[in-house]
Measured scan of single mutants.
Amino acid sequence: KKYKVVEVKENKDGTVELVVENENGEKKKITLSKEELDKLKAGDTVELK
Rank of each mutant, 00 (worst) to 15 (best):
N22W: 10
E26K: 05
L32K: 03
S33P: 14
K9I: 11
E10V: 07
S33Q: 14
L37D: 05
E21Y: 04
D38V: 10
G25N: 04
D44H: 04
K34F: 11
T15D: 04
N11V: 04
Y3F: 09
A42T: 08
E26R: 05
T31N: 08
D44Y: 01
K12R: 10
K41Y: 06
K12D: 10
L32N: 01
V20E: 00
G43E: 05
L40E: 01
V8P: 00
N22S: 15
N22M: 11
E10I: 05
E36V: 08
G14P: 00
V8M: 13
V6M: 07
V5S: 00
V19E: 05
V5Y: 02
K29W: 12
K2P: 04
K34I: 12
L48E: 13
K2N: 07
K28T: 14
V19L: 12
T31V: 11
G14N: 04
E26F: 09
V19H: 07
L48T: 13
V6C: 08
K34H: 13
D44R: 02
E26P: 01
V16M: 12
N24F: 14
G25A: 02
K12N: 14
D13Y: 03
N22G: 14
K9R: 12
E17H: 09
T31F: 11
S33Y: 08
E7A: 08
E35L: 12
G43M: 04
L32R: 07
L18S: 00
V20I: 11
E10L: 07
A42V: 15
D44M: 05
L48A: 13
L40S: 06
E26C: 15
T15W: 09
K41V: 12
E10K: 04
E10N: 09
V6D: 01
D13A: 01
L37Y: 14
V6N: 03
T15K: 04
S33D: 12
K41Q: 12
V20K: 00
T45I: 10
K9A: 06
E7L: 06
S33N: 11
V20G: 00
K1V: 14
T45A: 02
E47S: 05
V8C: 13
E35G: 14
T45Y: 15
K2I: 11
K12W: 13
D38S: 09
V8L: 09
